[in-house]
Design a protein around this nucleic acid. Structure first.
Lengths: 209, 209
DNA sequence: AGTATAAGGGGAGAGCACTCCACTTGTCAA
DNA sequence: TTGACAAGTGGAGTGCTCTCCCCTTATACT
């Protein structure tokens, strides 16, 4: 057997080789190069070629690891994203006596904070590739995880209150409203602050109870 | 003077030459070629190069007339869009005694009908260029015009009812929800019919009065 | 140590959007 | 009719994303 790790999956045994040493080095070089270029020129302005050059790898190597700039961005903010979700978790535990809508608002607030902190990279995460259809945001991993949380809370709201809305649909809409296109349009063109956007959204989704 | 038409604009006189005959022919050939290719392969699958080839013009000529595929699509559904807005106008006149929210719903219904009829081309209108920032949908001409109508009706709702929402923000969100990404996600992934989407949106924006 | 094998590497190249600009041509006024 | 010139043309060229595929190499087992 060639594998170094084994995982038992149902009745089958699957080999998982750990990342080769040289591959790990390249990965780090790519990440460093990307970070450097992103900081210098801005995420949007940097091409995959530039990153490959700066990292001294062929573009094939770059694309082998990251199918597009979005995935690269995601890797760069992975720590922040993990932090977001652990923040959310502690928040939910500490405030479990609050109403569902209050907790929902809290989550939105935490997410918006990340949006603001890592605006460019998060934009990169969303605006991914060109060939695979530019589907909805909901299919991006970060948003997907968030979606489940939102649905749970909307369900709770439905149980608590008299009305009965479609939780999945509402979560979809809320996330769509928080997507780059929509959010940054409100920020830049409409001139709203993060707090104002949060309040408007709470009003729209009746989250003020 | 070289111009064939004149327009008085303030204190200045501006020349407007009518389109050259050969240019008009090319324009028609481009439109025909695009339509043919779009029908055969689908809007997304057809490149500007292909269109230029099929139309037997250089790509420079194509781009002189249409800065991107979105503008080309817009030209192809211009008649339908004009029809939409005249339909909306007659609808609003005939139903002016309805509540603002009812009329709003009527407009949404008409728009969704267009979405369904010209789904692909409308998608093309939105997903325009690559260099100019892929800003919000609201900046697309069709959506912009719709936006003004929505704001007016939301304002009316505010005047009629006790609550006071932000009309511009609500119109932004409503249009975002009707944008290609969001709408076609609901259609294709969530499996909702146009009618169901309409109902969900009405519930979310409390348009059921 | 030797070797088979899969993981990784790199670069040529396809195909794309879009620009630039030297050239051609239709149009109008004289 | 003719000439001036804006309008229009076309294709070479740039720089991009992303794929393909042949080659190299680290690794695990013998």
């Amino acid at each position: 057997m060639l594998g170094s790790d084994e995982i038992v999956n149902g009745s089958e045994t699957i080999q998982i080789r750990s990342e080769r040493r040289d591959a790990a080095e390249n990965r780090q070089r790519i990440l460093n190069a990307a970070l450097k270029l992103f900081e210098q020129y801005g995420v949007e302005q940097v091409s995959m070629n530039q990153i490959a050059n700066e990292a001294q790898v062929g573009s094939g190597t770059l694309y082998r690891r990251y199918r597009n700039k979005g995935e690269l961005c995601l890797d760069l903010i992975k720590d922040n994203v993990d932090l977001l979700f652990s923040d959310i978790e502690t928040y939910l535990v500490q405030n479990q006596s609050d109403s569902p809508s209050q907790r929902l608002k809290g989550i939105l607030s935490l997410f918006i904070r990340l949006r603001e902190k890592k605006a460019q990279l998060l934009t990169g995460v969303e605006g991914s590739s060109s060939t695979n259809p530019p589907r909805s945001i909901i299919e991006s991993p970060v948003f997907n995880e968030l979606h489940q949380l939102l649905v749970k809370l909307f369900d709770e709201m439905n149980a608590t209150e008299q009305i009965h809305f479609n939780s999945v649909f509402r979560a979809d809409m809320l996330l769509t409203a928080l997507s780059r296109a929509s959010y940054s349009f409100q920020r830049d063109e409409r001139g709203y602050s993060p707090e104002m956007i949060l309040e408007q959204l709470c009003a729209l989704f009746s989250l003020n109870k």
